[in-house]
Amino acid sequence: VFVDDHLLEKVLELNAKGEKRLIKTWSRRSTIVPEMVGHTIAVYNGKQHVPVYITENMVGHKLGEFAP
């Protein structure tokens, strides 16, 4: 499973602090992992960042699938 390192670091850091804030990313190719559930990730679609709230059903899919 591929997840960009910088994105995973941000998610794990927020989980350690117990925070839930918006994470901006250009990494549409990253796979959604269970650690991301409950976070809102702003995924770049080529024009703007689209906020995507991550749920359990999204695990295993790519971030780009949810930012048309």
Rank of each mutant, 00 (worst) to 15 (best):
L7C: 02
I41L: 06
S30W: 01
K47R: 10
E9C: 15
T31G: 11
T31D: 08
M36K: 00
K20R: 11
V43L: 07
L12V: 09
K47I: 11
Y44G: 04
K62E: 13
M58D: 05
L12C: 11
V52I: 14
E13G: 07
E9R: 12
G18L: 04
R29M: 12
A42G: 14
Q48D: 13
G46D: 06
V52D: 00
L12G: 04
R29H: 14
T55G: 12
F66Y: 11
R21S: 11
F66G: 02
L7M: 03
V11H: 01
V43Q: 00
I41R: 00
H39F: 07
Y53L: 13
E19L: 10
Y53C: 14
I54L: 10
I23A: 01
P51E: 11
S30K: 01
R29W: 10
E35R: 04
I41T: 01
T31C: 15
M58A: 08
K10H: 14
T55R: 12
E56T: 13
A16T: 10
K24M: 10
I23G: 01
M58T: 06
E13P: 00
L8V: 04
T31L: 05
P34E: 11
S30D: 02
N15G: 03
K20Y: 07
R28P: 04
V37H: 05
Y53F: 13
V1D: 15
V3R: 01
L63D: 00
N57H: 11
R21M: 09
L14Y: 05
K24F: 15
E9A: 14
G18H: 07
L8Y: 10
E35L: 13
I23T: 02
V50H: 12
G46H: 15
V43K: 00
L12F: 06
H6M: 14
S27Q: 04
V37Y: 09
K24Q: 08
M58C: 06
H49R: 03
E9I: 13
K20N: 04
A16F: 07
V37N: 06
Q48I: 09
V33M: 09
H6N: 08
N15S: 04
I23Y: 01
K62W: 06
I23V: 08
N57G: 10
K10P: 01
P34L: 09
I32E: 00
V37P: 00
L7G: 01
G46E: 07
D4G: 01
Y53A: 10
G38N: 09
T31R: 09
V59L: 10
K47M: 12
D5F: 15
H6Y: 15
V50F: 10
E65R: 12
P34I: 14
L22A: 09
V3F: 03
I23M: 04
T40H: 08
L12H: 11
F66W: 10
L7T: 02
S27D: 04
L14T: 03
A16N: 10
I23K: 02
H61I: 09
V1R: 07
